[in-house]
Design a protein around this nucleic acid. Structure first.
Lengths: 223, 223
DNA sequence: CGATTAGTCAATAGACTTCTTGAGTATGCG
DNA sequence: CGCATACTCAAGAAGTCTATTGACTAATCG
């Protein structure tokens, strides 16, 4: 009978698909993918960002690599991991599905924002358009190397750590739009808090470079 | 320090995303999703198709349901599960990523096809256009209820089990294009084998209704 | 009413995963 | 050369997931 043979074929195929599923079945690995969406990184930078021991991070990266979601390149002492083709898009799809289907995601986010006193509802698309228009001061508050890897056309790089000391550069009478890595990065939330304390009109743009790339919004490199 | 609080926030968010990942981290659950792409089904039909015991199928369905990928509706003795919004697209994205990144998927498929003596390479898009054009006989070899739930505009329903006895309905001088549920369903492969044995010129269209819906190809219901 | 059917629930053995620890390897630097 | 750095590998304890079993519930039918 052909059935048992086709059963084995199906089992094999779904087993293969599962390699992708298993790769994204751990919160730490999703976090690593999220960080890698910002650009290639070495193992200990990744470990630091995700709050993992070096050995543990390395192990998770192996899993992602066997699922072919990331690629490694060794140069000197350092191993640099980067996302494979098509993976950024898939990660964003997964995130979008989670946001759409799991009310808990929104609840968690809202709880955090309220705690930080940063509750607000801004039309994200309209805000992005304003950021692109040049009518507002646009701040990229991520570390400088991430700014260099890609940023909004008229954003200026002011890392959160330097924000307080560089307030002089920012005109007080102009609205400020701050962004960072994306909706689940907290840098811009902090930046907006600081700016408001100092009397600025400031809002956070929730999206980040990975979202813009996926949406076809221009993202400049360097400068 | 704000860091530990934001650490907890991130952990929570990624934990939530992981619910989707975990749901698609088991081959059996992916198979259930695949079947549900064809339309709503009751628990024991799903169990039968996926080769699972009733209790085990029910358990897997609970997991998918807590991840909100599927929805249940009870009517009388039967519980009918259906895909939630946006899930069909996500499943197809996952499958596409697996096909693109994992050479093993293609290898497994090729091995099965060769074993069945069905190796061939047809330009899938061109074949779909021909199937839509009306110049060939288009056969939907799935069970009739699946045909009713959605099929190509000029396909006729000839379930694989009835194919041999209904060959009289099919003109011998016209090329036949057979399709079933999609690339990993074996019904059309068998159908093409039977047709060729009987002297027909027959090819398999690899895609299926879920693919066409995602691509905007018209898919009729009933009739 | 009692029997039947469709499905869920609960418990458990066995298999897999995760994180940790400590050792091992390769490269570069003084 | 010896030593430091960046990373990987291997082993094991603790936790999680899967499939199976048998009992349980809810709806239907005679």
């Amino acid at each position: 009978m052909a059935t048992s043979r086709s059963r084995r074929f199906k089992d094999d195929v779904f087993e293969q698909f599962t390699r992708i599923g298993k790769a994204v079945a751990s919160p730490k690995r999703l976090e690593l993918l999220d960080i890698l969406c910002q650009g290639p990184r070495t193992v200990d930078v990744l470990a630091g960002h995700a709050g993992l021991s070096l050995a543990n991070a390395s192990q998770h990266l192996q899993v992602l690599r066997t699922a072919r979601l990331i690629e490694a390149e060794k140069s000197g002492l350092f191993v640099t991991y980067r996302l494979a083709d098509g993976v950024e898009g898939f990660y964003l799809d997964l995130r979008r599905l989670a946001e759409a289907r799991l009310a808990e995601v929104e609840a968690t986010t809202r709880a955090y924002l309220e705690e930080r006193g940063a509750m607000e509802s801004v039309d994200s698309d309209a805000l992005l358009q304003r950021a692109l228009s040049g009518d507002v001061t646009v701040l990229d508050v991520r570390p400088p190397e991430e700014y260099r890897a890609g940023h909004l056309p008229n954003a200026r790089s002011v890392p959160l750590s330097e924000l307080r000391s560089r307030l002089g550069e920012l005109p007080k009478d102009r609205e400020v739009v701050a962004y960072c890595r994306g909706p689940y990065c907290v840098l811009a939330i902090e930046a907006v808090r600081v700016l408001r304390e100092e009397g600025y009109t400031a809002v956070r743009l929730e999206s980040g470079p990975p979202d813009w790339r996926a949406a076809g919004v221009p993202v400049e490199a360097s400068s």
